[in-house]
């Protein structure tokens, strides 16, 4: 059996602020992971990634990040994505500042 596809979100950093951004289902960039589109199909994920990569004047370093779908939205499966989604642990800066 082929390995099950791990759901993904499209993520990057915003060109102007450098802030972590995610691709929403409506093609807008969103700042909150909870608002990101979670993609469960591999072919669709690749298409969404290519589309997002073409938006070079908005986003830098676009890639697909592994997520677990939950009732409250995508949840990171790796601690690096968890830090990206919240901010640093030594100060309440970044996304946690706005929360």
């Amino acid at each position: 059996m082929p390995k099950a596809f791990t759901p993904k979100v499209v993520t990057a950093n915003a060109l102007l602020e450098g802030d972590v951004i995610y691709l929403g289902a409506d093609d807008t960039w969103v700042r909150d992971l909870a608002d990101a589109e979670i993609i469960t199909d591999e072919a669709i994920a690749q298409m969404r990634l290519l589309d997002a990569q073409s938006r070079a004047s908005e986003a830098v370093g676009v890639y697909l990040a592994d997520m677990a779908p939950t009732d409250s939205g995508p949840e990171p499966t790796h601690f690096r994505e968890a830090f990206r989604a919240t901010g640093p642990s030594n100060y309440s800066h970044g996304k946690q500042e706005r929360a």
Partner: peptide, 28 residues
Amino acid sequence: RRIAGNLTEDEFKPLRLMNGLYLQLHAY
């Protein structure tokens, strides 16, 4: 030029690095 879309990130990156500008986890 980068903000206006006249430079791609691949073109801009070596220029910004020469001037000490990184893009890190949460910000520049």
